[in-house]
């Protein structure tokens, strides 16, 4: 690792200027990915912009528009937040799933998204929940839906000088539930071999709508729109769940690597989608 300079702006505009002045700058939130990658020689930079002191990037707020989660708000604050626990229990479970206790004190779901790993645990659930990304840059602000944020392994839509300010998750509909189910060989401290996020809205024993997304089975987190759409209007039963699970499996494009062979991952997609849907349905039934 070589030397680098560091600044910690306290406003969005301050961050915009710092990034404009240093084209090779990297953005530091919790640092649980960036610092590890720099020490391993996988990322280099001469300038770090620490965004943790910017109020907008630290807020967690619920109002009629839904839940705003600042891009650098650490996981522990998310699962400890009363509105999150009450209205988005699946998100609270997710925040508690990422890393161990020490990591959760630093790591943010915004950082998890920006790191753009195919295996990112937060992203399938954010896609399932219909989250949108608020992005700031010299040209002003823009919004991108989460499923379009990651473009390749380690690559996202952020242009030069842009950064993620916050995530906006719509208010939960009546009769809705969601869940992220991942598979890791160990019981903790591991990278998802595959993962499935699902959200459902139920009405009179039928699916009104559903969204399903997968982790670790494509170059980016994968939104499987057709799997969720197939559930719309169907009765809530094993047959329809299995049909959606099989559609998710068929959409997966996994590779074989040190973490698992491709065919195994493909089969896991059906298992995990079924398990995620089952848990989301339980939550939705409890919500009604």
């Amino acid at each position: 690792m070589k030397w680098f300079d560091y600044s910690a702006p306290e406003s969005v505009s301050g961050a915009i200027s710092a990034l404009a002045a240093h084209p090779r700058a990297r953005i530091l939130a919790g640092g649980t990915d960036l610092l590890v990658q720099m020490r391993a020689g996988r990322k280099e930079t001469d300038f770090i912009v620490d965004v943790k002191r910017i109020p907008e990037l630290n807020e967690i707020r619920y109002d009629s528009d839904g839940l705003t989660v600042g891009a650098s708000a650490p996981c522990y604050r998310l699962y400890a937040h009363a509105d999150v626990a009450a209205r988005y229990p699946s998100l609270a479970r997710l925040a508690a799933l990422i890393g161990g206790t020490q990591i959760q004190g630093r790591a943010s779901i915004g950082g998890n998204l920006c790191n753009a790993a195919p295996s990112a645990d937060a992203v399938p659930l954010l896609i399932a929940l219909g989250a949108r990304c608020r992005i700031a840059g010299q040209a002003g602000e823009r919004e991108v839906v989460v499923e379009e944020f990651c473009t390749a392994p380690g690559v996202n839509v952020l242009g030069p000088g842009e950064f993620l300010v916050s995530l906006l998750i719509p208010p939960p509909a009546p009769g809705s539930g969601a869940h992220y189910e991942r598979f890791i060989p160990r019981n903790e401290m591991d990278i998802a071999v595959a993962g499935a996020g699902a959200s459902v809205v139920l009405e009179d024993g039928h699916f009104r709508s559903a969204r399903i997304a997968l982790a670790s089975v494509a170059p980016t987190p994968l939104f499987v729109r057709e799997a969720g759409d197939a559930l719309a209007g169907k009765p809530v039963n094993e047959e329809s769940i299995n049909e959606a699970a099989n559609l998710a499996r068929d959409a997966a494009r996994p590779i074989s690597d040190m973490r698992a062979p491709a065919e195994y991952r493909r089969r896991l997609c059906a298992v995990l989608t079924r398990r995620a849907l089952t848990r989301a349905i339980e939550e939705a039934r409890g919500n009604r």
């Binding site: 060989p185 160990r186 019981n187 903790e188 401290m189 591991d190 990278i191 690597d257 040190m258 973490r259």
Partner: peptide, 29 residues
């Protein structure tokens, strides 16, 4: 027995040379 191994590429590079991917059991396992 359950998870540990040197995962080698065909050209002889260890693919999982970190404690994250080498997967020794943790207390929870």
């Amino acid at each position: 027995a359950l998870n540990e191994e040197y995962h080698m590429s065909p050209d002889g590079a260890m693919q999982n040379a970190s404690l994250l991917d080498y997967r020794m059991p943790t207390a929870l396992d």
